[in-house]
């Protein structure tokens, strides 16, 4: 019988530009660390086995599924979650395009979609529709049929590139 308290590990991690230091069990997943330990509930859980992308966050600038990462693996690294994208009370242009283009319905996949799209646009600022669909293929949305998500990402790409979006 295991009656002794589980061993805890110290984790020092920067999340949304803030430094945290917490003691966690070795088996604690990053997604649960973010949601439960830090209270950042914008990161969602749809499967916990890496198939849906609802838990996507940026780890040192690249998108990861936070259900496939242990909290201890984030030690000494920087995480960005959906809560970290606003600036001075304004939505990030990508968040804004998901709003204006109705790129969401129930909103459950949205934070993961936005962070994945952010990673995509960082690597490929002028993606074609195909590029966008490939880039989002690890994130499932059960509501939208992806049409308005693709449009939202395309519009954000235009805005971020400094041009005026083609609203046609």
């Amino acid at each position: 019988m295991t009656s002794e308290a589980p061993v805890k590990h110290a984790v020092r991690v920067q999340v949304n530009e803030r430094q945290y230091e917490e003691e966690v069990e070795g088996r604690r997943l990053l997604v649960h660390f973010l949601r439960e330990t830090l209270g950042l509930t914008g990161t969602h859980v749809g499967c916990v086995v890496g198939e849906c992308g609802a838990c996507s966050v940026l780890l040192d600038g690249s998108v990861v599924k936070s259900c496939l990462v242990l909290a201890v693996q984030a030690d000494g690294r920087a995480v960005v979650t959906i809560e970290g994208l606003e600036r001075n009370g304004s939505l990030h242009p990508l968040q804004e395009s998901f709003v204006s283009r109705y790129g969401l319905q129930c909103g459950y996949c949205t934070p993961g979609m936005i962070l994945t799209a952010l990673d995509l646009l960082a690597r490929n600022p002028r993606p074609t529709e195909d590029d966008i669909r490939h880039g989002l293929a690890g994130n499932l949305c059960m509501c939208t049929g992806y049409m308005q998500i693709v449009e939202a990402v395309r519009e954000a790409a235009t805005v971020l590139a400094g041009a005026t979006p083609d609203l046609a």
Partner: peptide
């Protein structure tokens, strides 16, 4: 949409 796009949706969990 703004609450969902900003991670402010309120789901049971």
């Amino acid at each position: 949409a703004p609450r969902h796009a900003s991670g402010r949706g309120h789901f049971v969990d």
